[in-house]
Computed example of a mutant assay.
Amino acid sequence: MLQGYILTPQGFLRGRLHFSEAIEAIEEAPVDGPLILPGFLDLHVHGGGGREVMEGQEGVEATVRFHLRHGTTGLLATTVTAPLGSLEKALRGIREAMEGPLGKALLWAHLEGPFLNPGRLGAQPPFPLPPDREAAELLLSLAPVRVVTLAPELPGALELVRFLAERGVRVQLGHTEAGYEEALAALESGAMGFTHLYNAMTGLHHRTPGVVGLALERGRWAEAIPDGLHVHPAALKVALKAIPGLYFVSDAVAAAGMPDGTYPLGAHRVEKRKEGVWLGESLAGSTLTLDQALRNLVAWGIPLEEAARRLSWYPARYLGLSDRGEIAPGKRADLVVLDQGLKVLEVYLGGQRLV
């Protein structure tokens, strides 16, 4: 049992929360205590604590443990662009980790690539592949893949979008040089979202609206990185007004939680300098954790209730997960307990306290 200020679907309620593996009851009572929120869900995370998903099972499990300490009770283990052999190793590691003791915190895999535009790789390693159904079928056979990021302007991309959408995969547009019309064709073919909105895509211009313009005009879902480096807070607020299902991700890499220095990002070595991670002068993922994301969003004037929902309820709905993302009877007892400064005090996964 926990008591304090509980974020329910109806808003904050002062009372007691009864749970085992699942939420059993919410009892209103004149008690004091910490903030009790649904556990955060991170749909784009490459690593943390010096380890990364591309290492295989040990790297995946270390990534999960690191982010659990920061309130993330579910994540999509996210690959980077790499040769097929390296992707096979990572995906097998994700599948093995899902069968292990931390499997409850894995929401399957997010393939960021390899079907990306070679001219928009950013800090992605230089191993893009043209859209190819056979390669996609191989990758999907190795581990459950929930999200694929691709560039829709590449030859064969629309056919691949349709194939993936039919398989229940959420296709996101990213690392792309597509114009508005090419991106629109991908949405009409079954693509659903936009990867790290504003970054590694064609920007908004009043005569050439680009991928960003399409997202703001008719996007239903998109992810964004609220670290203060990838996107200005004002641009995030514009997206919040325009995109109903905007949710927030970390895009964290191995350097998250580590001192300044060099760390792996797939085949690259990237440099952590203060709060940023860089490949030369290009941002290379982030050091963000979702508890810090919550603090950032609130500091930028976004109400705590809305910020918390966009780190839990919204990503759950995007993935079609009905058993988590909110505190309500019958839902999984995946919880993060915070003090009034929004610092993590306790974390529960399936009712078991891990922090």
Rank of each mutant, 00 (worst) to 15 (best):
M1H: 02
Q10T: 04
G11T: 01
R16D: 04
A25Q: 13
A29V: 01
A29P: 00
L37M: 02
G39A: 02
D42Q: 02
H46V: 04
G48I: 02
G50S: 04
A62S: 14
T63D: 12
V64R: 06
V64N: 07
L68S: 03
L68V: 03
H70T: 09
H70Q: 14
H70F: 14
G71Y: 12
T72Y: 13
L76Q: 03
V80G: 03
T81F: 08
S86G: 15
L87T: 08
L87V: 08
A90K: 13
L91I: 05
G93Q: 10
G93T: 11
I94K: 10
P101Y: 09
K104G: 12
K104V: 03
L107R: 15
F115E: 10
L116I: 09
L121A: 00
L121D: 06
G122T: 01
A123F: 06
P126Q: 06
L129T: 08
L129C: 10
D132T: 05
A135V: 15
E137Q: 15
E137F: 05
L138Y: 09
L139G: 06
L140D: 12
L140M: 13
A143D: 04
V148E: 06
L150K: 02
L150F: 08
P152D: 08
L154F: 06
G156R: 01
L158I: 14
V161W: 09
F163D: 00
R167L: 03
V171L: 03
Q172P: 05
Q172H: 11
A178V: 04
Y180G: 03
A185C: 06
G193H: 00
M201G: 09
T202H: 00
G203Y: 00
G203V: 00
L204G: 01
L216P: 04
R218Y: 01
I225P: 05
D227C: 02
L229P: 01
H232L: 05
P233T: 08
L236F: 08
A239T: 01
K241Y: 12
I243N: 07
A254T: 10
M258K: 14
D260F: 03
G266Q: 11
A267D: 12
R269Q: 15
V270N: 14
V270E: 15
R273G: 11
G276H: 12
V277C: 04
S282W: 14
A284P: 10
T287G: 04
N296C: 09
V298I: 08
A299D: 15
P303G: 14
L304M: 09
E306D: 14
R310L: 08
L311H: 07
S312M: 05
W313A: 15
Y314N: 01
A316T: 04
D323E: 15
G325D: 04
E326M: 13
I327R: 07
G330W: 11
G330E: 12
V336S: 07
V337Y: 11
L338C: 04
G341T: 12
K343L: 14
G350Y: 09
G350M: 07
R353W: 10
V355S: 11
